[in-house]
Amino acid sequence: MLRLAGTIFASCLLSIQLCLAQGKQHADNPLTGTIDFHCHTGPDASPRSISDIDLARLAKKEGMRGIVLKNHYTMTADRAQIAMKEVGGIEVFGGIALNLSVGGLNAEAVRRMAAMEGHRGKVVWLPTVDAENSFEHGPGFRKFVSVVKDGKPVPELPEVFDVIAKNDLILETGHSTPAESLILIPAAKAAGIKKIIVTHAMLLGATIGQMKQMADMGAVIEFCWQAYLPKKGDKNLVDQKAIAQCVKAIQAIGAEYCIIDSDLGQPGNPLHPDGMRAYILALKANGLTAHDIDLVARKNPAKLLGLDAD
């Protein structure tokens, strides 16, 4: 009995020591063990500040655990596999955004992405640049891909959802409106999809109440650093009021239902690791606890990607 108690005590002591060591490591380098779930990289049809492989090398050097490559126009599962083999020592994942360039809501494109060698394709974004929601587009005619009609998911979505569910992929809502996401989330859950992320929800206009409702439905809410950076001609470094609102939202929703990432890669903006570091420090300065930062920057993204979250 005494021997068992001693073993338990030693095990608990070791766990405490490991936690303290991990906490010190995170304090010394805020990027240790982090995963950036939203990385724009080159080659791309849009200008990008860094390539897939160079970002993998940089993220590894900075102590990050992983990155997810995103492209609005083409699949990134194959590119993630190449970067993994070339760099090593860092997790690199990819996915596919269902914009017009891949055929829109194209279940076969998702199926082939999931089957790509290396199986690094984990994320399916619903339409982004070609979403019906025109929040980032000027006036005038343009083609778009609808995801909701008459209050229901469009007929093409059930097959897409089925492929996502069968391959245990992550569904992201893309640039859908908050109202559309509130329709899509329960439909995706009913189709058997276990992992759903609401893509930069606040940037798309979601209220804290709506985000809490989305989380209650089983979705994870994404917050991106790029949204707080200065716009062209703005001399302010970051939008401090918006960062404080971000902290308020994470606290209200619950950090266990949130992730943070950079959404960087645009020329003129910081590189992804610099953005992630600045984001973590800004969240901390505005009152988010070390425990909550650990959840949103490390454990939650790892769990979504099927990695050990400890």
Rank of each mutant, 00 (worst) to 15 (best):
Lys299Gln: 11
Ile293Arg: 13
Asn286Cys: 02
Leu295Met: 13
Val296Cys: 03
Met276Leu: 08
Gly275Trp: 00
Pro273Ser: 04
Pro270Asp: 10
Lys299Pro: 01
Pro273Ala: 01
Ala285Glu: 15
Gly287Leu: 13
Leu281Ala: 10
Ala278His: 14
Leu288Asn: 02
Gly265His: 09
Pro270Gln: 10
Asp263Lys: 12
Arg277Ala: 02
Arg298Pro: 03
Pro267Asn: 03
Asp292Glu: 15
Pro267Arg: 01
Ile280Gly: 01
Pro273Asn: 05
Ile260Pro: 10
Ile280Asp: 03
Asp274Cys: 02
Leu281Pro: 08
Ala290Leu: 13
Gly265Asn: 08
Ile260Cys: 03
Val296Leu: 09
Pro273Leu: 00
Val296His: 06
Asp263Ser: 09
His291Thr: 14
Ala285Val: 12
Asp292Phe: 12
Lys299Glu: 07
Asp292Gly: 11
Arg277Val: 00
Asp292Ala: 11
His291Pro: 08
Asp261Leu: 00
Leu271Pro: 07
Asp263Thr: 07
Val296Arg: 11
Gly265Glu: 10
Tyr279Ile: 00
Ala297Arg: 05
Ala290Trp: 06
Pro270Glu: 05
Lys299Tyr: 08
Lys284Leu: 06
Gly265Cys: 14
Ala290Val: 10
Arg277Cys: 00
Leu264His: 02
Ile280Tyr: 01
Ala285Met: 11
Arg277Trp: 00
Asn269Gln: 12
Leu295Cys: 03
Asn269Asp: 09
Gly275Pro: 03
Leu264Lys: 02
Ala282Cys: 07
Arg277Met: 01
Asp261Ser: 14
Arg298Lys: 11
Leu288Lys: 04
Ala278Thr: 13
Ile260Asn: 02
His272Val: 14
Tyr279Gln: 09
Asp261Ile: 01
Gly287Thr: 15
Leu295Tyr: 10
Val296Gly: 05
Gly265Lys: 08
Leu295Lys: 15
Gly275Tyr: 04
Ala297Pro: 06
Leu295Val: 11
Ala290Glu: 15
Thr289Cys: 06
Leu264Tyr: 06
Leu295Ala: 07
Ala297Tyr: 08
Val296Thr: 08
Leu288Ile: 09
Asp263Val: 05
Ser262Glu: 04
Ala278Pro: 11
Tyr279Trp: 11
Ala290Asn: 15
Ile260Met: 10
Ala282Ile: 00
Ser262Gly: 06
His291Tyr: 14
Pro267Met: 01
Asn269Ala: 11
Asp261Met: 00
Asn269Pro: 00
Ala297Val: 08
Arg298Cys: 04
Val296Pro: 00
Lys299Arg: 15
Ile280Lys: 02
His291Asp: 14
Asp274Ser: 10
Ala282Val: 02
Leu283Asn: 10
Gly268Ala: 06
Asn269Met: 12
Asn269Trp: 10
Val296Ser: 03
Ala285Lys: 15
Leu281Lys: 15
Met276Tyr: 12
Met276Thr: 07
Ile280Thr: 03
Lys299Phe: 02
Asp263Ile: 04
Ile293Asn: 12
Lys284Val: 04
Asn286Ser: 05
Asp261Thr: 04
Ser262Thr: 15
Asp292Ser: 14
Ile260His: 09
Ala297Thr: 06
Ala290Gln: 13
Leu288Trp: 02
Leu264Ile: 05
Ser262Pro: 07
Leu283Ile: 06
His291Gln: 14
Asn286Trp: 00
Gly265Asp: 09
Ala297Phe: 08
Leu271Ser: 08
Arg277Glu: 01
Ile293Gly: 05
Ala285Ile: 12
Asp263Phe: 13
Asp294Ser: 15
Arg298Glu: 01
Gly287Ile: 05
Ala290His: 14
Ile260Leu: 06
Asp292Cys: 12
